[in-house]
């Protein structure tokens, strides 16, 4: 089953916005998410392939609507719940 991340050759995404942005993070939380993920992989809570897998399991409509680091945050929460590091629902409002 192909997942939403697997977009090679897919039509309809339109022209590339070639703006040469130099800021990797657009909000402070994006930087936190980036660094937390690195720490969790370094601590072997999960590995990089599990992380990619978790990003890919995002429902297609949500995946496309989400920003880059929103996808990361989704994956981190998915894995931490799966690994029992946090309880299901513990991170919800």
């Amino acid at each position: 089953m192909a997942r939403m991340n697997d977009v090679g050759g897919m039509q309809g995404f339109g022209p590339v916005d070639t703006t040469d942005d130099t800021q990797p993070f657009h909000a402070d939380w994006e930087a936190r998410v980036f660094a937390l993920n690195g720490a969790l992989i370094a601590q072997k809570v999960y590995n990089l392939d599990e992380f990619r897998d978790a990003v890919e399991t995002m429902p297609p409509a949500e995946y496309l609507a989400a920003s880059y680091y929103e996808r990361w945050f989704f994956a981190i929460r998915t894995l931490l719940e799966r690994k029992g590091v946090v309880a299901a629902g513990e991170l919800d409002d």
Binding site: M1, A2, G8, D49
Partner: peptide, 13 residues
Amino acid sequence: HDPPHHTRLPRYA
């Protein structure tokens, strides 16, 4: 193949 899990072989290839 068309695996239900993560793979690094993209659909187009």
